[in-house]
Simulated scan of single mutants.
Amino acid sequence: MKLLMLGGTEFVGRAVVEAALARGWEVTVFHRGRHAAPAGVTSLIGDRTTGPDGLAALATGSWDAVVDTWSAAPSAVRDVARLLADRVGRYAYVSSRSVYAWPAAAGLDEDGPLVEGSADDGDVPYAEAKRGGELAATAAFGADRTLLVRAGLILGPYENVGRLPWWLGRIARGGPILAPGPASLSVQYVDVRDLAEWTLDAVAAGLSGPYNLVSPPGHVTMGDLLDACVRATGSDAELRWTEPEALVEAGAAPWSELPVWLPPGEMYDAMHCADVSRALAAGLRCRSAAETVADTWAWLESVGGTAPQRPDRPQVGLSPEREAEVLAALAKG
C-alpha cells in the first residue's frame, strides 16, 4: 500500500506513519517542516494554509490512500481533497465525536444529529471545523471512498495536548493527590496506536462512512487509569478518591483542571458513553490502560519528562497551588 499522510510528525499522524511503516507500506509525509519526519518516509514540504502555492509538492504523485487529521479551517481539507481526488484511492479523515449536536446523549451511535458545517468555512469553532472537514472530504471523494474516523479522547505516546502526561507527571511527584472519583467511573478514550491500526485496517478493507472510535463502555475506569500511573512511575503517591459532588462544590474544574474526568451528567454522557459497536464489529481492538500508561511514561522519560504542547490548546491540570486550595476546601467540608 502507498500511503500519503497529511501531517505525520506529531501525535496521531506520527502514530499512523509508524504503524504503516511497520506493515511495510510505502509512506509519504506532507508537512510544514517544523518537526522532523519519521525515518523511512518520503518527505514533502508545504503549507496548506497558504493557498495553492502551499500545495505545490502534492501536484504530482498517486497513492492508495490519504490520512488527514486536520482540525482547523475546513477549506484546507476541501482544497487538498480536490487536488488529490483523481490520484488517491481513499480518503481517511480523522474527525471527532464533537461533530454530534450538543448534547450528545448516552449511547449515541453514528446516526445521531450533527452540527452544521460547510466545506467552504474558514476559521470556525472546533466542532464545526471537523464537520466541515468531513463534508469537504466526502464532496471530493464521494461517500464510498471516504472514511470518517470520529475519535473521542485520544491518549498515548506522543500526546501533545497534555492530559495523560499531566497525570503521570503529577503522580510521579508523589504525596497526597486529588483523585476524582468514583474510582469505578468508566471513561472512554482510544490509545493513539489503536486508532492508527484500526484506521489502516479500515482503509485496506475499503471501509467508508462514519465510525465512533473510542474504547467500549466499561473498558477502563478512572481507578484503572490512575492506579496504572502509580505503578508505571513507581511513585509513593496517595490517591485521595473524592466523590464528584464534593469536587464540584470545592471548585475543581472537570476536564481542564482534572484531565479526562467528568462528573456524571450531560457532559459525561456526551464524552464517555458513546456507542462503538460499529467500530468493534469492524475490528477495533483496545489495549489495556496499563499498557497505554506504561508506554506513555516510557516515552515521557525518553524526552526528558516534558511533553510537547500544541500551541492551539490550553495547558491542562491543576497547578500545585490550586490542588492545595482544593484539598484544603475539601478538608474543611
Rank of each mutant, 00 (worst) to 15 (best):
L330W: 07
S62K: 06
T60D: 09
R131D: 02
V17K: 03
E197T: 07
S75H: 15
V303W: 00
T146N: 05
A331S: 08
G305W: 01
T306S: 13
V16K: 04
D227P: 00
V260N: 04
R278T: 12
G265I: 08
Y189T: 02
G251N: 00
G24L: 10
A136Y: 00
L164R: 03
L247I: 09
T50Q: 00
A289L: 14
A76M: 13
A37T: 00
G152H: 10
R23S: 04
S71P: 01
P103F: 02
R34T: 08
M5Y: 05
R150V: 08
V17W: 14
P165I: 14
W241S: 09
T42K: 09
A106E: 07
D121P: 06
S62A: 10
A270D: 07
L262C: 10
P180T: 08
G283I: 06
T50I: 00
E321P: 05
E116A: 13
R14A: 11
G283Q: 10
L83D: 04
G223A: 01
R287F: 11
G142P: 12
A101V: 10
S75T: 14
V316C: 14
A237P: 05
P157G: 01
T146R: 00
L318D: 04
A36F: 11
S186V: 08
T292I: 09
A331C: 10
L4I: 07
G333D: 08
A139T: 09
V161L: 11
M5D: 01
R78L: 09
Y91L: 05
E291H: 11
P210R: 03
W70I: 15
P254Q: 08
A279P: 03
G283P: 03
L195E: 04
R97M: 14
D64Y: 15
L4T: 01
P52A: 12
I154N: 10
E18P: 01
Q315E: 13
V190P: 11
R34K: 09
C229H: 03
G234C: 07
L55Y: 15
V80G: 15
T199H: 00
E18A: 01
A57H: 14
T49Q: 15
A252H: 04
P176K: 08
G132Y: 01
A329P: 03
L185C: 13
L300C: 09
W70A: 15
A92G: 06
L21K: 13
V17D: 00
S75Q: 15
P38S: 15
A139H: 13
V161M: 09
D269W: 03
G251E: 03
E266P: 02
L247F: 00
E249P: 14
V77Y: 04
S184W: 03
A270K: 04
G333R: 13
R313P: 09
R313S: 15
